[in-house]
């Protein structure tokens, strides 16, 4: 990443911290915004938030690691989330998850070497009518079977080619 972009992101982060300075219970909203700027929460970002909000880094780290929405690791360009809610589970989301692991050669929580795909399992996203469901970034795919997975990955790989 070039430095210009880094500087820009830091300016955004500083603005977010400034805007939330006087808010009670600001930490979680600030972490949400920081993650939407950086895509994840690297140590330097947590440290800057701690200094800005005048709380210990340990507390920022403690909160960031408690909630599953926050990630300390870089995510892929395409974030695959397989819903493991009950409705999806009884309709075979476990098989779907395995298929992704097999096809991408990564485990849940990991990212492919080319940085394209990361794989997560998530809690119910509430689209149970379409079970089993996955999301890739903000796109929802429903009523899936194992057989659909290759085509979905091919589609995203095709977009990169």
């Amino acid at each position: 990443m070039c430095c210009e972009e880094q500087v820009l992101m830091q300016q955004k982060l500083d603005k977010v911290i400034e805007d939330h300075k006087d808010m009670q219970g600001a930490l979680i909203p600030v972490l949400h915004e920081a993650q939407s700027i950086y895509g994840y929460l690297p140590y330097e970002v947590m440290k800057r938030i701690a200094e800005g909000l005048q709380i210990p880094v340990a507390k920022v780290y403690g909160v960031a690691t408690f909630y599953s929405q926050f990630s300390l690791e870089k995510k892929g360009k395409y974030r695959i989330n397989v819903c493991m809610g009950t409705a999806c589970y009884v309709k075979g989301s476990g098989d779907i998850l395995n298929k992704f692991r097999e096809r991408l050669g990564i485990e849940v929580g990991e990212c492919t070497d080319d940085g394209l795909f990361s794989l997560e399992s998530c809690r119910c996203i509430g689209a149970c009518g379409l079970a089993p469901v996955i999301t890739i970034n903000d796109e929802v795919y429903g009523r899936l079977t194992e057989k659909d997975i290759d085509a979905i990955i091919d589609k995203y790989e095709g977009m990169e080619a």
């Binding site: 219970g25 979680i28 909630y67």
Partner: peptide
């Protein structure tokens, strides 16, 4: 509006309020 951050336990009343305060729920 306060956004949760993906912790099931925050549906429990006291954890929810502690989370709003900006802590581990």
């Amino acid at each position: 509006i306060r956004l949760g951050a993906g912790a099931f336990v925050c549906g429990e009343g006291s954890a929810l309020m502690i989370s709003i305060e900006g802590n581990r729920g």
